[in-house]
């Protein structure tokens, strides 16, 4: 992310992802309340369906981006020594990427199964 973009773009992304995460969460709650799939196979089928899996992937990516920007903001506010901040940012980035990969892997496995 370029230096120039990290202000407005980050702010806009955080708001956009918040909206998506919010809407998708509402959808999830609705599904769970009114037509929750019964049993493991039904779950797999539901999640494995193309619309849901794409939406879910988008949800995961949104959550991670939202988290990244939020955590980055906190670190910019509170952690001023540049070496410590870079290290923390690196560790957090790695763990967020790992989470993302793990989620992607799970989704792919569901699709393949």
């Amino acid at each position: 992310m370029s230096r120039k973009a990290s202000g407005l773009k980050a702010w806009a992304i955080q708001r956009l992802t918040a909206i998506y995460v919010g809407l998708f969460t509402l959808y999830l709650v609705a599904v769970l309340l009114f037509s929750a799939p019964e049993g493991y196979e039904a779950w797999k089928a539901w999640i494995g369906g193309p619309p849901v899996s794409v939406a879910l992937l988008l949800f995961v990516v949104s959550v991670l981006m939202h988290a990244w920007i939020g955590v980055r903001d906190v670190l910019i506010d509170y952690v001023h020594p540049i070496a410590i901040r870079a290290t923390l940012l690196g560790l957090i980035a790695l763990s967020l990427i790992a989470m993302g990969l793990w989620a992607a892997q799970a989704l792919i496995l569901v699709r393949l199964a």
């Binding site: 120039k4 202000g7 506010d77």
Partner: peptide, 10 residues
């Protein structure tokens, strides 16, 4: 001038 993570977006 206001772009970037600091000047405005803190």
């Amino acid at each position: 001038e206001l772009e970037g993570p600091y000047k405005l977006f803190r």
